[in-house]
Computed example of a mutant assay.
Amino acid sequence: MNKLRVVIVEDEPVTARNLAHVLQNVDQNIDVTASLPDVKDAVEWFNDNPGAYDLVFMDIRLADGVSFDIFKQADVLKPVIFVTAYNDYAIQAFKNNGIDYILKPFDEAEIELALSKFKRLVVQRPKGDANQPFEQLLQHVKILAKPYKKSFLVHFRDKLIPVETVKIAWFYTAHEIVYAQTTDGQQYNIEFTMEQLEQQLEPDLFFRANRQFIINRKALTEVDFYFNGRLSLKMKPEPPEKILISKARVPEFKKWVDS
């Protein structure tokens, strides 16, 4: 029986070793072909080894960016099982070859279930489908990933009106109420939490600046340096308070703006 060639993309060495151990304990036919610690190494490896693997286990937040950046720079044509500590990337994961989404800390049973799903989808496909491209096999999985919201139905003067998502400059939460501010100066209450919004908004257009704000890149007018390595954002319309990017999130924010 041919070995199942698995690639691990994980920036925490202990987690990578633990995952490799669990995989080989679940299925002795698994060969961990490569363990890659960051976006840069992963891009190089996938570009240099296009046919040298069957399945990828991939963390999402890596030391030098998010793993979705890999798909922009390399052809990853095989299934991906995402293993992450964050639950807010599920939709994006299923749009990038994802067939499963496991939250850390993972256990052996979850890994075994994910491998079973992979085998049902790919390894044990009907003989007549042997040459079917993987992209076609994924179609029924991708329907699990709902499209990003294009509009919100909001209450306004005893009516319900649709508000286009692209026209929302920023979302803001205060006293457990979430508001949406439109580019034309209207403000509405939104019946979603900020965490729910993160899963429903197009990540190329919207960014979770901090606990209180999710911003639209089209409403960002200026970025100023602030104390202790933070950044201060200027938006149009102007928000009710200063929007700050923490020092730890500055690299992620810069990459988002510069993408």
Rank of each mutant, 00 (worst) to 15 (best):
D158N: 14
M58R: 02
F68E: 03
V32W: 04
L19P: 04
V166I: 12
E241W: 06
I81H: 02
V257R: 15
D224N: 12
T15M: 08
D184Y: 11
Y172D: 06
T182Y: 11
F94C: 09
T15R: 01
P162F: 15
D27T: 03
A63S: 13
R208L: 12
V32C: 11
Q124K: 13
L4Q: 01
Q73A: 12
Y101E: 04
I243E: 06
P240K: 10
D204A: 14
Q212N: 09
L233I: 00
T182I: 01
F106Y: 15
L231G: 07
T193Q: 07
T33Y: 11
P147R: 07
I214P: 01
G51L: 10
V9C: 14
K254F: 07
R211V: 11
L160M: 15
K218Q: 13
V76F: 04
D69A: 15
K95N: 11
K117Q: 09
T84E: 07
W256D: 07
P79F: 08
N189G: 04
E202C: 13
V178P: 06
L144H: 09
V39C: 15
Q212G: 08
E44V: 05
G128E: 15
D158C: 10
I8R: 08
G128P: 00
A145N: 03
K149F: 07
K40W: 03
N49T: 04
P240C: 06
S116K: 13
D11R: 01
L220S: 03
Y86E: 05
L62Q: 03
S259K: 15
V223L: 12
F206H: 01
V154C: 13
F46N: 02
Q181H: 05
V32K: 04
F225G: 07
V6E: 08
S232L: 13
V56D: 00
E202A: 15
M58N: 01
V223P: 06
A174T: 00
W45S: 06
K142P: 00
I143Y: 05
D38A: 09
Y226Q: 05
A90H: 00
S35Y: 02
N47R: 14
L62P: 02
P240V: 11
V223Q: 02
F156I: 00
K159H: 12
T173R: 13
S151F: 14
G229H: 04
G229A: 09
V154F: 13
V9W: 07
V9Q: 06
N228I: 01
E164W: 02
T165F: 05
L113E: 15
L19T: 04
K167I: 03
G98D: 04
Q92I: 02
G185S: 07
I102V: 13
D88M: 14
R125G: 10
A145Q: 03
F192K: 13
A248V: 04
A93M: 03
S67M: 03
K3Y: 05
D11K: 01
N49D: 10
K104P: 06
A85G: 13
D204K: 14
L115H: 05
T183Y: 02
Y172W: 09
E112K: 15
V56H: 00
L4S: 01
E44R: 14
F207G: 01
